[in-house]
Each structure stands twice: as C-alpha cells, then as structure tokens.
Amino acid sequence: MTIAKQKVLIVDDTPENISLISNALSDRKRIAATNGSKAIELALQHKPDLILLDIIMPEMDGFEVCRILKSNQETKDIPVIFITAETETESIVKGFEVGGIDYVTKPINVRELQARVKTQLALKTSMDDNIRYIAEIDKRNKQITDSINYAHLIQKASLPSKDYLKDILPKHFVYYGPRDIVSGDFYWAKKVEDKTIVIAADCTGHGVPGAFLSMYGIAFLNEIVLKDKITEPDQILNRMRETVIQSLNQGEMTNMQDGMDMVVLTINSNFSSVDYAGANNPLWILRGEEMLITRGDTMPIGKHVFMNDFTKHTVPLIKGDQLYIFSDGYADQFGGPRNRKLMKKNFRAKLIEFSEFELAEQKKKLLEFFCEWQDGNEQIDDTLIISIKI
C-alpha cells in the first residue's frame, strides 16, 4: 500500500471544517462523517488508515466514538488524531486514555495538520508492513514446523519399536530426549542369529542437521549389519567410518568434519558376556554399587586426525549387572544452583542412586532430575541413555 492510496476518515459536525481538512489532505483518499454513529459505520466499512476525530459533537462525543472503535477487533488498530478546540490538559489526557495517539487544535493550522497526518500515516505504513512480515514469517514457520513434525514421525518410525526391544532385551529402558523436534541422537538394535546388537549414537549437531545425519547412520547400519552380516562391534565402527567419510565426501581437501560418536554392544546368546567398541563414548556397567567403566577409542565416526582401527573389548557379565550406554547430552546440561554442567561423575552418581528402583522408575527419576537440574535453562543437546539389565 503506497502513501498516495492511504485513506483518511474525517469526522466533524461542521461541514466547513470537513472541507478545510479535506482540501489540506487532497493527496489522500478522504471519506467524511458528520456524527459519531456514521463515523463508526464508515470505519467498519472502509477500514481507513487514519481517523481525524472531532471531540465535541452532538449525541456522541469523540471520546465515546474512540472508545467504541478501540473495543472492536476490526477497528482497534486504526490510529486516531483528535481535533479539538479544547486545550485543557485534562481533555488532552482523556483523549490519550481512550486510545488517541495525537491531537490537533482548532482553529486548524493546515501545515501542522499535514505534518501530523504525514507522521502518523508513515507509522501506520510501518506497522502494517510489520504485521504482514510477521504473518508471512508465521506462515513460513508453520510450513517448516509441519515439515519437521512429519520428519519426526519418519525418524521415530526408523527407531526400534518398543515391542521389538522388549522381545530382544527383556529388561531395559531407553531415555530419549531430543532437544528439538527431531534429534541427532539415535539408537539401533537387532537380533542377528544368536547375537543381540545394541547401538547408541550421537551425531554432530542437533535438530534438522543432526537428524539428517542420524537417518544416514540408521541406513548405514542396516546395510553393514543386516546385509553384509558384520556383527563384531569394532568392525561395525570401522565400516561405519569408511561409509561416513565416503558418503560425506570427507576427502583430504574438504573441511567437512561431521560425524558421530557411537557405542556398539554385541551381546552373546546367553547374556554371559558383551563385546564392546566405542567411538569416544564408554560402556558403564553397574555391578552392585560399583560402576565398572570400559573406555572406547578417542576418535569419532568420521574424518579425524587419528584413524586407527577401533578396539574390541570383551567383558564378562553376571546376573544383576546393569549396562549403560549414552550420548553426552545429559551430562553436559547446564543447571543446578551454580548453573554449571552436570558432568559425568554426577551423572554416574545419579545412575547409582536410582539403580535400586525398577527400570521404568529409574527412567522416570532420570527425567525428573534432568528437569530439576535444568531449572529453566534451555536444553543444550539431545539426550540418550540406554540401560540393559542382565
């Protein structure tokens, strides 16, 4: 809408004043009313960009007209300049209180009127532009959010189902807390012949970029484990690294450093031992009140300064052991009385503290503590904890 097309409603019970004001604003579209009722009718019908409103009129004064306009959703945002012969402070203040934004005194100074109208119409143009921009942003944001919500459904469908996990891991819980709608953390589990393979992964980034990489990761694991029948955890990590580097074109001349941290567990058929390999992240086993820590290799799945083969660790298991694999999001969360990171030692202490409860209750208490620790802070990363009880 250009300024030349902006519309001004002039309201005055004196035709001479209407004529004077109309001539002064000859570069605008003008409509006029000689009483309050007609002014309200025209305002609703034409939606003017500005109203010049006389205060002293018979039947309904300008204050009442303004109150009615401001109480109506369709006219409440139309700016009102009062025209008045009254110069008392009380009258001027009352005009602002009922919703006026400016006033012009009688007898009317044409140049002053033109300047005030020009200023208010320019402000109205800016406000209308902002409303349109916000509406467009809201529209685009909804489209994007709808797309991400759909992507969330796809990502969720790519994860192991609760029924399948319960079938291959009778005693377990999965704590999965995306920072955004979609997550850069993911988990993967399959029963392959007499072995149960469980994987927890943390992709570079979170939100949409992390989710893209996580979907790649799930597809790669399906290819490596299910098609190529690779079940040894170190070999899975080695092949994953090769595939990620090749798929993301992480050659010598690229700065693409995206990748993932990952833990792979291959549990034997009678759950008497577990083969473990880790890209940056460890395996924790709670045995009684002692947390046994098996550390992985300090290199990610992706291009890195160190590119050695990953290491396989075979760890004997006994009945009652509780295994934990996880991403770093839970321990890295800021909060608490000093607004610091939780840190792994405190995370470990909470796992030990909650271990006396049933698995479902452990998961509930981890969530409750995380919210308590967060204490209003923004969640900084995706969170993932998988626990398996032997």
Rank of each mutant, 00 (worst) to 15 (best):
K7P: 01
L9E: 05
T14M: 07
A32Q: 12
A39N: 08
E41I: 01
L42S: 04
P48L: 07
I51M: 05
I56H: 12
E64N: 13
T84R: 09
A85F: 11
R111M: 12
E112P: 01
L123V: 13
D128L: 09
K139E: 11
N141W: 03
Q143E: 15
I144M: 13
H152S: 14
L153D: 12
Q155K: 14
A157S: 15
P160R: 09
D163G: 02
Y175P: 02
G177L: 12
I181R: 02
V192T: 08
C203E: 07
N222W: 04
D228H: 14
T231C: 12
P233G: 12
D234V: 02
Q235T: 13
Q246C: 00
Q246N: 11
Q246V: 00
N255R: 13
Q257M: 05
G259F: 07
T266G: 02
S269H: 12
V274Q: 03
G278A: 04
G278Q: 08
A279S: 15
L283S: 09
L286M: 06
T294C: 05
P300N: 11
M307Q: 15
T311Y: 01
H313R: 05
P316C: 04
G335M: 08
P337Q: 02
R340D: 04
K344E: 10
K345E: 08
R348E: 06
R348K: 13
E358V: 10
E358M: 05
L359E: 03
G376F: 01
D382L: 06
S387H: 09
